[in-house]
Design a protein around this nucleic acid. Structure first.
Length: 613
RNA sequence: GGGCUUGUGGCUUAGCUUGGAUAGAGCGCCGGGCUUCUAACCCGGAUGUCGAGGGUUCGAAUCCCUCCAGGCCCGCCA
């Protein structure tokens, strides 16, 4: 088979979703156990905060958690004090009493009561209500927590974590430039872009890169098509769609006449040698496609800082250098081809880096690329399709052998169509552009029904924002290790557990604030709906931290939905504008805090926080 | 065949790395709510052998083993 439509950083033509592949992974499968928290946020928070007092309570949930953990460890002598989410019972809870029951030969409930009694006297915990409920020790945060959280949440940029000095490079999308981005590729883009936004929110210095595969077989096929098929771009046709037409047609020709494969091979050799005409041919086709990608990604609010071209690592000699370095390893073997024996790392297959005809393979250039990244950045993160799990692990193993930095890889599973796998080569895919167009159309008609009084341009603008929200949220809300089947009905649904649902909560809050006019902020809340809401607001920085630590952007999606849910409940039961005195002021403050948090969350999700819809 | 991975109500899905209090949510279904801050909303109801079976544990959707089913990878492609 000539070309299996493997997009390097796969978008997907299969089913199945994603997973997280850490360097420690691969053999064993129990890599989760070995997961290391590389970004020790808490330490850096403390470092950065220095002597300054708890200035704005920005990180109070995180700090309260750490504080309770510390105190519990000292009180119980346990290495793991069993701190868990308190659910409906509390903000946090400890199950330490269970662990102590055997050694102390006491009933868990009695132990819990005893510990709770001790903790109640600890000065640092004076703002918390600490009580034993059966075997559980419950921690319920008090008024000071609520007011400092509320005060923090009304400020600009709420949720940002202290700046860190480490530099991180994050690569995502990197689809082969042989046709438009489709609904599989943009899973990569959206996971990657959301992660990037979270890293920046978490204070990291970040560069986002797109690795351009400009010397693959697919591109050679496109190049062959350019020179042998008379298929100019149509009027107004986007470059990426044009390239796809040529690619599909060229593949049909190859099916009819397999002899063409030799011509394609020749083009690949020429481009590696640096033959000027062929290089120009490839570069032209790739650029045309890339221009189309950029338009699509910009519509999706996805941005790269740098496009790195694969062929540059041939031209600048880096590929040769890494091959030379590897050749000194005892694992290196040179027969007619050049390969590395990775059996020591658990891989049986020969890891081939140079063909017998002397040309390099993809893996060799990828090594050169990663070495370059490792020498310019402290952390490397790649977002790759699940089809790259093996090659990613081999890459990591080899980088370890030569003592270079290796990436953390976020894998995501594939998006398929109801009728089966997507395939650029076969022309079987739903392009991201088509998806955008359809969703915008649907959004426009919804806006028009709901807000007929708004002028058309305004409705169009809202429709674009709503469509973007629907698409990005639909994708990011699913955990990456889950495969999905693309569904038009779901894509066009703007209710509940959707991006527009969250935008709507934000717009409602804006509407109240617009009507309220000036008011004095009051940071005291009393009833349950208010307190539940502010406690959710207070968790935002903690969620940002969790996303970058665990590389799981869908946590933010879940958080956003829960925040909108709680605001809607508050909205429904607690009148704001009609309330009076301090209650009105306090509720307005809470609405402002919610609005501000929703805005920050939406922006971190790459979604427009529209003020009206 | 080997490695990796997924399996939670009719459908979609959270929770699983760090085991704990009656497994959360949306769609769909049934019943309510717009003279009241935007109904892209809210409230109530029905719906679950957490793929199956073992094991560890005071306690398992979560950890371990076996099995079943789907998927991905296993190229001198990228």
């Amino acid at each position: 088979m000539l070309c299996t439509a493997h997009c390097r950083r796969g978008g997907g033509y299969h089913r199945r979703a994603h997973q997280l592949c850490r360097p420690e992974q691969y053999q064993g499968g129990d890599y989760f156990k070995r997961l290391r928290r590389r970004f020790d946020t808490l330490h850096s928070i403390r470092r950065n905060r220095g002597n300054s007092p708890l200035q704005d309570g920005i990180l109070m949930f995180l700090e309260n958690k750490a504080l309770i953990e510390d105190v519990l460890k000292k009180t119980t002598g346990l290495a793991d004090p069993g701190l868990v989410e308190g659910g409906e019972h509390a903000d946090l809870a400890s199950t330490a009493a269970f662990s102590l029951a055997k050694t102390r030969k006491m009933a868990p409930a009695a132990i819990a009561a005893e510990i709770a009694g001790v903790l109640a006297g600890v000065p640092e915990l004076k703002d918390m209500k600490i009580e034993a409920k059966g075997p559980y020790i419950n921690f319920i945060f008090g008024p000071e927590y609520i007011s400092t959280s509320l005060a923090a949440a009304v400020r600009d940029g709420y949720g940002s974590l202290p700046a860190k000095h480490q530099r991180t490079v994050l690569e995502h999308t990197s689809a082969n430039p042989n046709g438009p981005l489709h609904v599989g590729h943009i899973r990569n883009s959206i996971i990657g872009d959301t992660l990037a936004r979270c890293f920046r929110k978490a204070g990291y210095r970040l560069e986002v890169q797109y690795y351009v595969n400009d010397m693959g077989r697919q591109i050679a096929i496109v190049g062959w098509g350019y020179t042998h098929l008379d298929m100019p771009a149509g009027v107004g046709e986007k470059g990426d769609h044009h390239v796809a037409r040529v690619y599909i047609a060229a593949n049909r020709e190859i099916e009819k006449n397999p002899g063409i494969v030799e011509e394609v091979d020749r083009l690949m050799q020429l481009v590696e040698k640096g033959d000027a005409t062929t290089v120009k041919l490839f570069r032209g086709a790739v650029s045309e496609c890339l221009e189309g990608f950029k338009v699509t990604m910009s519509r999706l609010n996805v941005r790269h800082d740098r496009f790195v071209w694969e062929s540059d690592f041939i031209r600048n000699g880096d590929t040769e250098k890494v091959l030379a370095k590897i050749s000194h390893l005892k694992e290196a073997h040179s027969d007619d081809k050049f390969w590395v024996d990775l059996t020591g790392a658990g891989f049986e297959k020969e890891y081939v880096l140079r063909r017998s005809d002397g040309t390099s393979v993809y893996a060799a250039r990828d090594l050169a690329y990663h070495i370059w990244k490792g020498r310019n950045f402290d952390h490397i993160i790649d977002v790759l399709g699940a089809d790259h799990k093996l090659i990613g692990a081999q890459l990591i193993a080899t980088l370890k052998l030569i003592g270079e930095k290796y990436p953390e890889i976020v894998h995501f599973e594939f998006v398929s169509l109801p009728e089966g796998s997507m395939s650029t080569r076969a022309g079987k895919f739903v392009s991201a552009d088509e998806l955008m167009d359809e969703v915008i159309k649907q959004a426009f008609s919804e806006v028009t029904v709901r807000r007929p009084e708004l002028d058309e341009d305004l409705r169009k603008g809202i429709a674009r924002s709503v469509a973007l929200a629907a698409i990005r949220y639909d994708i990011v809300k699913i955990s990456p290790e889950k495969s999905t089947v693309f569904d038009w009905k779901e894509a066009l649904d703007f209710e509940r557990q959707s991006g527009p649902y969250i935008q709507y909560a934000h717009a409602r809050a804006c509407s109240i604030l617009d009507k309220a006019g000036e008011f004095e902020e009051v940071f005291e809340l009393e009833n349950e709906n208010e307190i539940t809401l502010v406690k959710q607001i207070a968790k935002f920085p903690y969620i940002v931290d969790a996303v970058v630590k665990e590389l799981r952007p869908h946590l933010l999606a879940t958080y956003a939905r829960e925040l909108a849910d709680l605001f809607n409940a508050f909205y429904h039961f607690e009148p704001v504008l009609k309330a009076e005195g301090r209650t009105r002021q306090a509720r307005l403050t809470l609405v402002k805090a919610t609005q501000n948090t929703l805005k920050e969350v939406l922006e971190t999700l790459g979604i427009d926080a529209v003020r009206t819809m």
